[in-house]
Simulated scan of single mutants.
Amino acid sequence: MIQPDFTLAASVQTLPTPRTMYRALSRRDPAYEGVFFTGVKTTGIFCRPTCKAKRPRAENVEFFPTVTEALHGGYRPCRLCRPMDGTRPVPPLVERLRRAAEAAADGRVTDKDLAAMGVEPTTARRQFKAYHGMTFHAYQRARRMGLALREVKAGKPVIAVQLDRGYESTSGFREAFARVFGAPPRGAKAAACLLARRMETPLGTMLALADDAGLRLLEFVDRRGLERELVGLRRRLKCAIVPGNHAILDQTAVQLSEYFSGLRTEFTIPLAPVGSEFQGRVWSELGRIPPGHTRSYAEMAQRLGIPKGPRAIGRANGSNMLALVIPCHRVINADGTLNGYAGGLWRKQRLLEHERKYAS
């Protein structure tokens, strides 16, 4: 991961004050979607801030930063607002901010620019962070560095890149570049980076990382251990992670949409998984499980010629960083029960039901 500018994984979140959240709940304020969830003590359910159910009393609610924490608090999802089902569309202001950053000559939108757009900077920061989990300025800094690396690798003079990206100080540009990519601009032609994009699905937001080799990671953003995976990828590939565009990311977004729409049951995205030789064997075998079918860990072990290795199979499954496209969700216990899915057993159940529905 890039630190401190671009944190892709969810970290400990600081909630607004209870008074602020209750006021947002009372107003059903969409600006707070994704910022908090409300647990209602009298009903045992948890809701989105915009839920249309009758407003509970202030003394009967408690607030959580994530779905996971609400579940750990003993609450079940509301059937009206369905906080775990589907994802909200990109808020218009967030989309407007992203487009403004892409259109800016140097990739930078200042508070003065926001004011000229009629946008209150504090509102922009709150909504962008609520949706993306990172500030708008952090997004811009990471994107500018990613564009700078691409231009340096293409042979553009460093001083021209520095000025084009809005850095007036040569030393400041050099330090910022080295902090992200581990090398000064002049030595960066061989530097690598993974391009990152968040993608919305009916089962929650996913994070995709890709480079020219293929898709490296596709995970639900609330997956246990995602931050550790990002650190490991960055270390093993000796690369940085920056937001950006890539043809493989475009392909991934299209095929995810087709998958959840029932138009496709298998993926044809170029993959470049990072793992050991044994893990690679397990992942290849996972790809042979037909959609709509499942196998037990013991069956997997038999097929791989290691009949005493179900536990090793389980560990390799857990190391898979390409959810859905390498279908580790199709492996279950011998008795037919579900087990071992870092994205959550509820997602595993939904994925299997979805595939059974459309595989035929």
Rank of each mutant, 00 (worst) to 15 (best):
A213L: 14
E62Q: 14
G287V: 08
R28A: 09
S360W: 05
R88D: 15
L71N: 05
G244C: 06
P30T: 14
I159R: 15
W283S: 10
N333Q: 15
T7G: 06
W346P: 03
H293T: 11
L230R: 10
G146C: 14
I332M: 08
G133V: 03
V254R: 09
G262M: 00
T14D: 11
H137P: 04
S276D: 12
T50P: 03
G39R: 01
Y131D: 00
H72F: 07
G232Q: 12
T170Q: 14
V40C: 08
L249F: 01
K52D: 11
R150N: 11
G232P: 00
D211R: 06
P56Y: 10
L233R: 12
L351V: 02
E229I: 15
F267V: 02
C78P: 06
T268W: 01
V221K: 07
T17P: 09
V119R: 01
E59G: 01
H132P: 00
P49L: 05
E355L: 03
K54M: 13
E175I: 04
A70E: 00
I159G: 14
D335G: 01
V231H: 10
R143E: 14
C239V: 11
K54F: 01
S360K: 10
H354D: 03
P290L: 11
E102I: 09
P91R: 00
R79M: 09
A9E: 01
F278Q: 09
R55D: 01
R236M: 11
Q349K: 13
K52T: 14
Q13K: 12
